[in-house]
Design a protein around this nucleic acid. Structure first.
Lengths: 217, 217
DNA sequence: ATATAAATTTAGATTTGTCTAAAATTAATA
DNA sequence: TATTAATTTTAGACAAATCTAAATTTATAT
């Protein structure tokens, strides 16, 4: 139905939309997709012709409902494949994204629904991001970042804000994984670094930079 | 490494090669790939420049070792994905080919090896075709077609020659599936149609046309 | 408010894979 | 063997997606 490239543009624009009504800029899309502004303008015209977004010269773009639908379905496929790669094939959470970038473009509604069923209808991907349903509905996560949690409160590591490979590798290295039980035992006023208790056993220190990028519930 | 299209051409040429030393013709490739001879000539030149095949004008092509390797790895990926779709996602054997045509182009050595491990290192796909190993080696099947089997001999349905959706659907309809135990109980001289016993229980009739396209061991 | 900077678009070119129509080559046949 | 038929190649064009460089529009700052 839609090309590889079209789906990638729609996904990028969807992620850059903050629903402020303000259009997504050409440059921000170019930066996000590692391409040039001129290429973005070309593609925007094409997507506009196909009614996937609204475009006014020099004013940026906004996805139409149709455009949002395609973006959300692509995200759904991406995240379901990530679960498969992590749960079944035992890929690390820092490895799944790149492969899912390819798998998300496989065209078959039936495939993704059967895969979803095979995986037991997961609600979140290996980074804690919610998986939209077949009809595109997101269940709100309501996670908070670890640097806002008060001392002595038990929480569960439920997601990350930074999805970069180095960050995910770092968390793995210090034994922080999704689903982990943790408790803040000390907050250092000076640099807002934290001392944590993992699974009621091991104590570790993390910087505020790390804490800000961890989501818990 | 190689594009979607390049891999498809190499796969088609590989399948059309009967190792007679005689080159694969432009027209046969065009027919196989549902495209035009002129397009094939263009692509052949490109693949020849990349040393994936040997090309002499008007004489057809022969894959180089490099070309064969790419073709075999693509076939390997295709068949492993077919096993996944059939065994794990419960797709029918007539449904798996089309989706595997897409999945075979996903680029990740690690992915296919982990998938292979997850599936328990299958040796055959859902149509009985052998799955080449990581190093490209095929284990020879040595199956025979059902129309050559003598009466009262017990055999196992191990593959098909015709891979078309209608044929596979027909076999499914008459309850013939891979791994099935069967015995020829009667061979009609007139039209070489057969009466079969399935699993030592049910009797069915099949035409010679069907028997010719079934492989057993 | 006007000059300068930043962002965006246009114009024209490139690459990949495809096509049609015409030309060239090889095969078939009378 | 000469002629027709079939196959294959070339020439030139096209669509998708990209790029560079130049032109245009919008934003910023003095």
């Amino acid at each position: 139905m839609y090309s590889f490239t079209e789906e990638n543009y729609l996904k990028a624009i969807y992620k850059l939309s903050d629903n402020n009504g303000s259009g997504v800029s050409t440059n921000s899309i170019a930066e996000n997709m590692q391409t040039k502004a001129a290429s973005v303008t070309d593609m925007i015209k094409k997507l506009s012709d196909k009614k996937l977004l609204k475009y006014e010269k020099y004013k940026g773009v906004n996805l139409s409902q149709k455009g949002k639908d395609v973006a959300i379905q692509t995200i759904r496929k991406h995240r379901i494949w990530e679960v498969f790669l992590h749960e079944k094939l035992k890929f690390g959470w820092e490895e799944v994204h790149e492969i899912a970038e390819q798998l998300e473009h496989i065209q078959s509604e039936l495939l993704i629904n059967k895969l979803d069923e095979f995986l037991g209808y997961p609600t979140h991907d290996p980074h804690g991001d919610p998986i939209p349903g077949e009809n595109g509905e997101f269940h709100n996560n309501a996670f908070v970042s670890l640097d806002t949690v008060e001392a002595n409160k038990k929480v569960i590591l439920s997601g990350v804000i930074n999805h970069s490979v180095p960050f995910l590798q770092h968390l793995k290295k210090i034994d922080l994984t999704l689903g982990q039980k943790l408790m803040v035992i000390e907050i250092n006023e000076y640099d807002r670094s934290l001392k944590l208790l993992l699974n009621g056993k091991i104590e570790i220190f993390i910087s505020n930079e790390v804490a800000k990028n961890i989501l818990v519930k």
